[in-house]
């Protein structure tokens, strides 16, 4: 569970930083929700799925993402 959270957090954080930097050309242009909102929402939804899977796996005694 912890490993999944760390990996996913890293991927989402790196993606968000890259999107913010690239879409604003290193803050030369304004930041738009249209650009950073998509990866942010996708990240939140993925974390929710991970959380639900972890809860279900805790009942089964397995690890999230397996099977």
């Amino acid at each position: 569970m912890k490993r999944h959270v760390v990996i996913l957090l890293g991927v989402v954080a790196v993606t968000l930083i890259a999107v913010v930097l690239a879409s604003t050309t290193f803050f030369e242009r304004p930041l738009r929700l249209y650009d950073y909102g998509t990866p942010l929402l996708a990240g939140v939804l993925t974390f929710l799925k991970l959380w639900f899977d972890a809860r279900a796996a805790a009942h089964r005694g397995g690890a999230p993402g397996e099977g």
């Binding site: 990866p39 799925k49 993402g65």
Partner: peptide
């Protein structure tokens, strides 16, 4: 689809899906 890549692929799928959805709905 294995455990290490499972959520990264899910993140990319949701990212791209939402990106298309928002673009079309806009």
């Amino acid at each position: 689809g294995g455990s290490r890549w499972h959520y990264i692929v899910l993140f990319a799928r949701l990212y791209y899906g939402i990106h298309f959805l928002v673009s079309g709905l806009n």
